[in-house]
């Protein structure tokens, strides 16, 4: 075994200090050193996307990144999505649309969609399909995954509009009050 290095990582908001070989990929470090086994490895050459995590909010392949490169970055994994036993809206959409069967690729698709929707909340179905083509799934035929991501996006849009309307109404009311 070769030289090890002390690194610090921030994963799901938690800081970690590790002494590891620099050749360890972020994926192996998450899984083996931090015990965050939700991130899966399906090909180790960046095609299947089962290891997709968020690096500073953007989806990235954890198999194509050494853990040492991830220092000072904000890493998020599938373990961060749910609030205790309460699934996130994206996770619920996946379940409702039967967008997972064996579940092996699922964490990668969830993180892919999570990062994408944060940047492109108004994405069209075609854009979502193109996004979903980033990762491989062998069970579902993809359609339910596209459906789930689209459904989640629409619900978020609706709730944003709802929120905006409420905020607008609030502002109007307070405006009236001020004018009176």
């Amino acid at each position: 075994m070769t030289d090890r290095q002390l690194i610090t990582l921030r994963v799901n908001g938690e800081p970690y200090e590790l002494v590891i070989e620099p050749r360890r990929t972020l994926a192996d470090t998450l899984r083996q050193d931090l015990g965050l086994t939700g991130t899966h490895l399906g090909c180790e050459h960046g095609i299947c996307g089962a290891c997709t995590v968020l690096v500073d909010g953007a989806p990235a392949r954890a198999c194509l990144m050494f853990a040492v490169q991830a220092e000072d970055r904000d890493i998020r994994t599938v373990e961060s999505l749910a609030d205790g036993d309460e699934l996130s809206d994206l996770q619920r959409a996946f379940s409702a649309h039967h967008a997972l069967q064996c579940g092996f690729c699922t964490p990668g698709f969830l993180m892919l969609a999570e990062g994408f929707l944060a940047e492109r909340p108004e994405a069209t179905r075609e854009e979502i399909r193109e996004l979903v083509s980033s990762n491989l799934c062998r069970c579902t035929g993809y359609q339910p995954i596209v459906d789930a991501v689209e459904d989640c996006a629409r619900r978020r849009q609706a709730s944003r509009r709802e929120h905006d309307r409420a905020a607008c109404g609030e502002a109007e009311r307070s405006g009236h009050a001020a004018g009176a």
């Binding site: 960046g46 997709t52 953007a58 990235a60 392949r61």
Partner: peptide
Amino acid sequence: MAWVGHLPIRTR
């Protein structure tokens, strides 16, 4: 850029 791999490749 749309032709460069997929989003998770393009971000890195």
